[in-house]
Simulated assay, not measured.
Amino acid sequence: MSEIFVDLGTVDAPSGVLVLGMAGWIDEWRHLGRPLSERARTAAATGGGHLHEWLCEAVAVPAADDRPLTVRASTSPSPFDGEPTIATLEIGLGLQWPVTVDPSAAERSLPVRLGDLPVDRCGMVVGDAAVLDAWRGMADEASDGLADVFYWGRYADDAHARFGGERIARYEGDGPRGWLDLPVAEASIRAAELTAWRDGLHGTGLMVSVDKHNDFHRVQRAGWHHPLHAGVIDVSGCRVLGIAWDQGDHSMRHRGERDAGQVYPVSLEADEAGAVVLRWVIPPYGSPGERAGE
């Protein structure tokens, strides 16, 4: 039975090099010597490859620089809550498979294994290698001077009666309460007021967070209403796609990541029309070969 794919969005690769990487670590590449774009360009020059240093991992491949690149996914049920999770992530690279003497030969469709990737608990990012050099990670400042404030926990109703705040909807239903799109200084003040109130009356039982509008938060926010937590944002004039993994599903299936052998194969393949696609395959929970190393 063939897989059924759904479109997640499109991305751009004006540098001609596309990266699939771990969202929580994209901004760390710049602190490890060579920029991500340089490493990715070197890998793409040989047809594509796996990049790995410290906790940072990514796959880089050549891609068309003059058209949108479609990202699709097939799904399988999560063992955590039965909701759909990504089984295969497929990215059309806008290039044709290298011509063989006999275009109908079986070798034309054999996958080219590039390596494997763990599922980052902070999500994954698909985007242009050069653009991702400027990626603002979770600890970076906002790109627009704004931030979101959230609070939740045992005393959330009491806090709402005292401070207000809207319920922030998610695909799964009601999310935490809070305020969106506040100036960073105002967001910090509101969070401080909530924290002081909690510490003065309860001590514990209320979680408070301030999420600045850096690229990491913006791409997670873009996926709030998508069943696969996928969303597209603009970074330096280019479309970048992010996927925020469900935390419960990650704990059930992918916890420990590479250190626990929870890695999944990435390959280049030819689709039915002979175009090159990048495929990342995550077998269903408990299936044979669920771990790439087995």
Rank of each mutant, 00 (worst) to 15 (best):
V131A: 12
E272W: 13
G200W: 02
A13L: 07
R72V: 11
D215N: 12
S188L: 15
H226Y: 10
Q96D: 13
G21P: 14
I26E: 10
F163C: 00
A134W: 03
L51E: 02
D199G: 00
V276T: 06
L132T: 04
I282S: 14
E141G: 13
H213T: 07
D259R: 09
W179D: 07
E83S: 11
L180F: 15
H229A: 09
P227F: 13
I86F: 02
E193F: 01
D81W: 08
L201D: 01
W280Q: 05
V263F: 05
D81S: 12
R113C: 05
H160K: 15
P284S: 11
Y155N: 09
G164C: 06
A87W: 14
S188Y: 13
A185M: 07
G127M: 03
D65S: 15
R177A: 11
G237T: 04
L201Q: 06
T204G: 05
E294Q: 09
D234G: 06
P111E: 09
S188D: 15
T85S: 07
G293N: 09
D65E: 11
G48F: 04
G9H: 04
P35D: 02
D249R: 12
V99S: 13
V219K: 08
G261C: 06
P84N: 07
D174C: 06
R221S: 11
P14Y: 02
W224H: 10
A139V: 08
Q220D: 08
E193V: 01
P103A: 08
P98D: 02
H226I: 00
V276A: 02
R72E: 14
D157K: 09
E193G: 01
T70D: 07
V101G: 12
V281G: 01
E90Q: 15
D144V: 04
M22P: 00
A87F: 11
A134H: 13
P79A: 06
K212M: 09
E290H: 12
F5C: 01
G33R: 03
L182Y: 00
R218Y: 05
L8E: 04
T42Q: 12
Q262F: 10
A191V: 01
E107D: 14
R198Q: 10
R190M: 01
W197C: 02
I91K: 03
C56K: 08
D27F: 10
E166G: 14
P118Y: 15
R41S: 15
Y171S: 03
H50T: 06
